[in-house]
Simulated assay, not measured.
Amino acid sequence: MLLQDKEVAIIGAGPVGLTMAKLLQQQGVAVTVYERDINAQARIWGGPLDLHKGTGQDALKRAGLLQHYYDMAICMGRTITDKQVNLLFRRIPTPEEEYDNPEINRNDLRILLLESLAANTVVWDRKLSGLTALDAKWILHFEGKPDVVADFVIGANGGMSSVRKYVTDAEVEYTGSFIIQGEVPDPEINCPEFYQLCGGNILMTTANGITFTANPNNNGALMYGISFRKPESWFIENRPDFQDVGSIATLLSDMLADWHSVYKEPFRSTSLFVGLPTRKIALNHWKTNRTLPITLIGDAAHLIPPFAGEGVNTGLQDALILSDNLTNGKFDSVAAAISNYEQQMFVYAGEAQLQTSINEIAMHEPEFSFQKRFSE
């Protein structure tokens, strides 16, 4: 086996990094995951994830975790309204659709993956500061922590990955949209009208180039996102303070001034806001003269905005293909296994980026209709 007697270091304990660790570990590979979070209880911010058949679900199936995912996930319907709360479309999932992209809380998915790994696979409180090549090994440097040594490094630490510069010169680019996310605890109490409008489904509304989506069932909280197109200078000039909950609530209320008041109800009860300029990274400029084994998976490799739900699924596809290449006995070297994975990834991740870009532009056009999209 290519990785016999080799130590693999995965940077990042997100769903992609942990799945990669599981897939390698079940083939007898020595793997350690280094994560900057303090411990396994650190809360992961963000809305639920839906894993797709053919990509994310296939990776979990290979890992022997697909049924566990089904047991923990929720199949959500869709409620589509206009800005005056008129119901345009509602779809309740049928029993046959129970396993089509059900939604799972990010923290629940992390726990599921962690519990599948050998004890002490993840080393917490390790923020990577750099890598050094020495004597055919990688020396991993961490802020305030001892160095460690590995034979092979896999960067799975997200869109702003510190590993990326060792693999590619590509720069992260702003795609032209901005998302403001908010969370409301106990929504049935804190925003009852809006919660009722959702009807237990994912709510989707769009008007005048603004999209509003909400999931009322994220481990007892309602998670919502409002996206809109703005030049990057807008963020620099306005500098919204997302720690000031009141000012962001006012900003959103003003933005939705001509929308029905029920859409503004969640703003007053939001416990935390996060602002996200949407970004991507070009799939070129990857270095071909890497002397030691190193590569990227997930957002570290191909940052994709959330407008097609492809980010985590493409990352899990990375983990499935790369782990298979490294353990199936079909390649003569680790370098060849990595190269084959990367050439495949450039194709399917490029297609995911393209579809996401098409969706991003279309969803923020004034005439865009969720109703038409879901009824087609």
Rank of each mutant, 00 (worst) to 15 (best):
K165I: 11
K165D: 09
V167Y: 02
V167P: 01
D169F: 10
A170H: 06
E171W: 08
V172A: 14
V172S: 14
Y174Q: 04
G176H: 05
F178N: 14
I179N: 06
I180F: 14
E183P: 00
P185H: 04
P185W: 01
D186F: 12
D186I: 09
C191P: 00
C191T: 06
P192C: 11
Q196H: 15
Q196C: 11
C198H: 06
G200I: 04
G200Y: 02
I202N: 12
T211I: 15
T213F: 14
A214N: 01
N215P: 00
P216L: 10
P216F: 09
P216C: 07
N218E: 09
N219W: 05
A221P: 00
Y224F: 14
I226Q: 09
F228M: 05
K230S: 12
S233Y: 10
E237Y: 06
N238S: 02
P240Y: 12
F242Y: 14
V245Q: 13
G246A: 10
G246T: 13
T250R: 15
L251Y: 09
L252P: 01
D254C: 12
M255H: 03
A257H: 10
A257E: 10
W259M: 05
H260G: 07
S261K: 13
V262L: 12
K264A: 09
E265C: 03
P266I: 02
P266T: 06
P266G: 06
R268C: 08
S269W: 04
G275A: 11
T278G: 05
T278H: 04
T278D: 08
K280F: 13
I281N: 09
L283M: 10
W286I: 13
R290E: 09
T291R: 11
L296H: 04
D299M: 11
L303E: 02
L303P: 01
P305R: 08
